[in-house]
């Protein structure tokens, strides 16, 4: 086997490896575990996993809780408290909205684009 062939073989293997990693970035990355995002006045506040129990204080506006793979609002400074009364959400596309505070919590993941 001469040097050129060896070099070419390395090149092919590298290209295959690159394609494979690109494939995983585009596809495998997309179907990763479900998470949710919080936006305040349209700006992303943070993205969090759904499978870890936690409590998040959103800028002093409201308290978001993750429990048993579902997210809910446990307290809010708004007057109507619609967000606090909303049932916990866990399905991709579902949201809890606090309009007075401009807070939107949206479950991410492979599923639906919007939930009505």
């Amino acid at each position: 086997m001469n040097k050129t062939v060896l070099r070419n073989a390395i090149l092919i293997v590298s290209i295959l490896a690159l394609s494979a990693s690109l494939f995983f970035i585009f596809y495998a990355g997309r179907s990763a575990g479900i998470s949710f995002e919080i936006t305040v006045n349209g700006k992303l506040y943070g993205t969090y996993p759904l499978d870890t129990d936690m409590t998040i204080d959103v800028d002093g506006l409201c308290t978001v809780q993750v429990k048993n793979c579902a997210v809910s609002v446990t307290d809010s400074t708004c007057s109507g408290k619609d967000c606090v009364h909303h049932k916990p959400v866990s399905t991709a596309g579902e949201r809890i909205i606090c309009l007075p505070n401009g807070v939107v919590i949206r479950v991410l993941g492979e599923g639906v684009d919007f939930v009505l």
Binding site: A70, K87, P88, S90, T91, G93, E94, G111, V112, D113, F114, V115, L116
Partner: peptide, 21 residues
């Protein structure tokens, strides 16, 4: 979308999650 049609979920009014999409 690049992967096909848009998917819109309809909430299950009586329970958790989606009734259909």
């Amino acid at each position: 979308k690049p992967d096909g049609l848009w998917k819109i979920g309809v909430q299950d009014p009586g329970g958790d999650g989606l009734y259909t999409k």
